[in-house]
């Protein structure tokens, strides 16, 4: 089997996690490369979560929250939105390609959109190949 990306998804409980559940109840198929971790709000996502996932060999990380104006916690998604560019700047310094880390808005009714986001991201990362950290981790393991 060729390269299969490992992607970690952080989804807010109220919109995006519910949207991902809706994709399930609607039986909308998407690629199985994303494992989802639920948080209450996209504002809860500490940049270290993303760094941790990448340092553990994730090929990509997707953060999903409620659309602007639609946050269950009034303004949590705006906090995520403002923190995100800072994180991206840092990741760029580390040499992490732009496509690997994404912030997407998925509402509770957008099961279809969630599947499209995941498929698009999976395809793009598959084309990009494994992350440099993953390659290094795998090499270290072989050495040991």
């Amino acid at each position: 089997m060729g390269f299969e990306p490992r992607i970690v998804g952080f989804l807010c409980n109220w919109c995006s996690y519910t949207g991902a559940d809706l994709a399930g109840t609607s039986r909308i198929k998407y690629q199985p490369n994303v494992s989802i971790i639920r948080v209450m709000c996209s504002a809860r996502i500490d940049p270290t979560f993303v760094l941790k996932a990448l340092s553990m060999g994730a090929d990509g990380v997707v953060i999903c929250g409620c659309h602007p104006v639609d946050c269950h916690y009034i303004s949590g998604n705006y906090k995520a939105m403002r923190r995100f560019p800072l994180l991206k700047k840092l990741l760029k310094e580390f040499g992490v390609e732009d496509e690997r880390v994404r912030l997407e808005w998925v509402s509770a009714s957008e099961g279809q959109r969630f599947s499209e986001v995941i498929n698009d991201m999976t395809d793009k990362i598959r084309a990009l190949g494994p992350s440099k950290i993953r390659v290094q981790l795998d090499a270290d393991k072989v050495e040991r």
Binding site: R6, V8, I37, F49, G57
Partner: peptide, 16 residues
């Protein structure tokens, strides 16, 4: 943080 870190490790450790 600890609980979420453990989850991140869980999904990725299994894969690697």
């Amino acid at each position: 943080d600890k609980q979420i870190f453990e989850q991140i490790e869980g999904v990725l450790e299994w894969a690697s």
